[in-house]
Each structure stands twice: as structure tokens, then as C-alpha cells.
């Protein structure tokens, strides 16, 4: 993995979520990036947009559920105000 690409992704997250950060959300997004970099490093644009479409993001009061279906594995994250769980 390129450290510069990781830096670019960190910047994208920081710029979008803001400095006061939703730190847990930022951590989860970085984890998703690492998993995708490892499992699907050469995503095409169509595959990337299709994966966005298939990524479930649900918000329920103090919980955000993110589910990324990579085909051979599903990354599932539950982010609470107090903690986050990855399965």
C-alpha cells in the first residue's frame, strides 16, 4: 500500500467530516479503506460505484450501521456514541 494514498484518504475523511471529527467514524472509514486496499486494490470505476451502491449506511438514533459487501466478505460496522463494533 502507498503511504501517500493513505494520506490522501485521511485528508478526504478529515476535510469531509471536519476537524472536531466524528473520530470513530473516521476510524471506521480508514479500516474500510485498508480492507478494500487489501482485498480489491484494483477496483474499476464501475466496480467502485457499484460498491458504493451496495454499501448500506443506516442511521438509527445514536447508532450508525455501515455494511460493505465485497462479495467474498461482508464488513459490518456498528458505530455508537460510546463505542464501535466490527464483525
Amino acid at each position: 500500500m502507498s503511504s501517500l494514498v493513505e494520506k490522501i484518504v485521511e485528508d478526504i475523511i478529515k476535510e469531509s467530516l471536519g476537524e472536531k471529527a466524528e473520530n470513530k467514524v473516521a476510524e471506521v472509514l480508514l479500516d474500510i479503506f485498508h480492507e478494500i486496499s487489501h482485498r480489491r486494490p484494483h477496483l474499476s470505476y464501475s466496480e467502485a460505484l457499484n460498491l458504493v451502491k451496495k454499501t448500506k449506511i443506516e442511521r438509527n438514533r445514536d447508532k450508525i450501521l455501515i455494511e460493505v459487501d465485497l462479495g467474498d466478505a461482508v464488513l459490518r460496522y456498528e458505530i455508537y456514541t460510546s463505542s464501535s463494533h466490527k464483525t
Binding site: 500500500m1 469531509s16 486494490p41 470505476y45 450508525i64
Partner: peptide, 22 residues
């Protein structure tokens, strides 16, 4: 070289997903 190819697709995915979460 480090990535072993072009990471544009992964970067596009991250950009879109960060926007959706934002």
C-alpha cells in the same frame, strides 16, 4: 509502483462513501 497498479477506483469509492456518511 507501490500500489502495483492504479488506486483511482479505491479512491473514488472512498470519496463517494465519505460523502454519503457526511
Amino acid at each position: 509502483e507501490e500500489w502495483g497498479g492504479d488506486p483511482s477506483g479505491v479512491l473514488l469509492y472512498m470519496l463517494c462513501i465519505v460523502e454519503r456518511i457526511h
